[in-house]
Design a protein around this nucleic acid. Structure first.
Lengths: 220, 220
DNA sequence: CAAATTTTTGACCGATTGGACAAACGTTAG
DNA sequence: CTAACGTTTGTCCAATCGGTCAAAAATTTG
């Protein structure tokens, strides 16, 4: 008799892998634990034992739901990318350009605040050369960014926005917002006990809005 | 007879550890190799064997110069921090504020271009919670940033700069410049073959200058 | 109920890890 | 030359790694 596995590799046929209630719950539990572990230790720095312990189960039990360590990481990555790019997808041609950009910045900053582990997981992957998601970067991501850069370029041509490089503008928004998730320890250490509390995201939001809209030149 | 070691732990007395010519050269070789390996794989993701091979020597030979893996990382970190904060230390009260900030941004961007491995080594450490340099962040770094933030605040009070949060301004400069080192793979993937070449740093410099000085609002 | 199936676990495996050690080798000073 | 010292390496070790497997335990199905 063939052995059965609760997990399904990503390369299998696209048909829904119909899972039992227990399988769904346990897989969810593992992914949650793995997000915690991977995001703070990186892929190679994390062990299956750590994830299993964080998920409250034995290692062989975990391997019953995900056959390989990489399968967990892959599943996590696929889910992440959808939600991670959602704010940029929402960037819309209709509406006032400055308002549109401001709310994109705000949404990205909220994601850094509410999903710091996802941000760090992504940062870890990119830092190490993106060995597992390179095709996505050159494909899906590039296409999306090019598309949005074209919209921004249109706004600039219409005189609604200062003329500048849309791609580097998007990079700057990513960098400044994700910084508050990826470099959180540093931000809190530098701000100190008094200013490093919960208010730091509102301070950041105010600052970034002013920076991106008006820059640093004094008025008048 | 006591065994001798070419390496000296950081906790030993501060006296110069007088080393032979060979020791200096080999230690330098190891640190160069370790920078390459650590910056792309993280601390836990790197092995002594990898570093030894990259340095062209056997593992026991490497361990003759650095007794533990951590000692290499620690030495690398200490050297890094000095040069890494040098641009901020240069930020000076004399001279025009906008010019001063512009050249700080340019210096940081040049460091991202010329020392990407150092940037990634630092990013790796912060991402994983800065377990090895936390005291430095709360001590030396915070002191330096507070000091420079006070200078910037002075400029703002004098009407030479738009009023905003100096700390978050420094974060934004760090984030936008280091992004081109830490997320280099992503930047190149999104820009594509034509625009992702050597010119990307000049494009970034132009964009960042405009962003920080004038923001995105259209003129007039 | 009982049979079939799914879930869980302890024991185990080969590979890799960081590091120890003594012996061999090279170099230098008297 | 030779003794002392500095350098290099092969070999080894215990711990940890990702992953297997068979059997026990729990659950679902008829």
């Amino acid at each position: 008799m063939l052995r059965r596995f609760a997990g399904v590799t990503a390369t299998m046929e696209g048909s829904a892998p119909r899972r039992t209630r227990i399988q769904q719950e346990k897989r969810e539990l593992i992914l949650e634990a793995a997000l915690e572990v991977f995001s703070t230790n990186g892929f190679r720095g994390s062990t299956i034992d750590q994830i299993a312990e964080a998920a409250g189960m034995s290692k062989p039990n975990l391997l019953y739901y995900f056959r390989r360590k990489e399968d967990i990481h892959e599943t996590l990555m696929q889910r992440l990318l959808d939600t991670w790019l959602a704010p940029l997808r929402e960037l819309d041609d209709i509406g006032d350009p400055l308002t549109e950009l401001r709310s994109y910045i705000r949404r990205k900053l909220e994601m850094a605040r509410d999903f710091p582990r996802e941000s760090r997981l992504f940062a870890n992957e990119i830092l190490q050369g993106a060995p597992r998601i390179m095709p996505m970067l050159e494909g899906e991501l590039k296409t999306l960014v090019d598309e949005k850069a074209a919209i921004i370029k249109g706004w600039m041509r219409a005189g609604k926005l200062a003329r500048t490089d849309p791609w580097h503008l998007i990079f700057a928004i990513w960098a400044t917002t994700q910084h508050y998730a990826d470099f959180d320890v540093q931000v809190r250490a530098v701000l100190g006990a008094d200013r490093g509390g919960d208010g730091r995201f509102e301070d950041a939001a105010r600052f970034l809005e002013q920076l991106f809209l008006d820059g640093l030149k004094p008025k008048g």
